[in-house]
Design a protein around this nucleic acid. Structure first.
Lengths: 121, 121
DNA sequence: CTATTATGCCTTGTGAAGCTAGGTATGCTG
DNA sequence: CAGCATACCTAGCTTCACAAGGCATAATAG
């Protein structure tokens, strides 16, 4: 069942932007890409992805065109807008800083790893 | 104003457990500890921390006793229960895996860092 | 021919939880 | 006395992942 759903909040959008930047263009493909890249640990639910795509489109970070697959199925292809590209970089940076902070507090970088005696004590 | 609030969802609880394991015992001190350990980037709001502490207490991960500071102010001292200690380890592991996943998707570990040509393409 | 699976899009309702913006009370300091 | 730090708390808002569906077509299996 993947991980704690709450962890995904705040990281889904950078993930989606990144996957689209990486070449995935339509919802179904984006979902698969995320699933594969994370062994199904991040986002399996389409009910999460589609609203997120709409949200990003509404914010002007993504633009979309309808197209038809070779088999004749309708697909909505997304692409990063210029603003979306900026945001992709910004969210990457934000995630990097955030995860470093958390790792710092969780002591992931203290090589000895001791339970007591924090610097802020 | 710190980072995207949504990022904190899912990571606040491991952070709190960790800080308590590190020696902080009561709310005000825990808040300061988190603030200091993260240069104010993680959690400044007491309105976030106190409900979280109550939640963790309700889940049986924390236990609390009221005490009085040397100056005479009431303090509620928290400590990890045995279950809380287990959860601390579990949440640490969960965070580690999750952040690795996200870093993988965001391409933090690909040294070259290229915008196209993902493995899942 | 029919049933199932895969593809591909979508929505509604619910719950959880961080944030804002307060409130209360005491002690120390200017 | 005024102001700040200490120390606890709550109510209401908002956002968003999730569960659980729905709809439609194509390919495959029986």
């Amino acid at each position: 069942m993947s991980t704690n759903p709450d962890l995904l909040r705040g990281s889904l959008e950078p993930i989606v932007l990144e996957v689209i930047a990486g070449g995935a263009t339509y919802g179904y493909e984006i979902a698969k890409a995320i699933g594969q890249a994370s062994q199904g640990k991040l986002l399996a639910q389409e009910g999460t992805l589609y609203p997120a795509l709409h949200r990003l489109e509404r914010k002007g970070w993504l633009a979309a065109d309808w197209d038809v697959s070779p088999e004749g199925r309708k697909r909505k292809h997304y692409r990063l807008t210029p603003l979306g590209k900026k945001q992709r970089a910004a969210l990457r940076a934000e995630w990097t800083e955030f995860s470093r902070m958390v790792n710092g507090v969780l002591g992931m970088e203290r090589n000895g790893w001791h339970t007591h005696g924090f610097a802020w004590a």
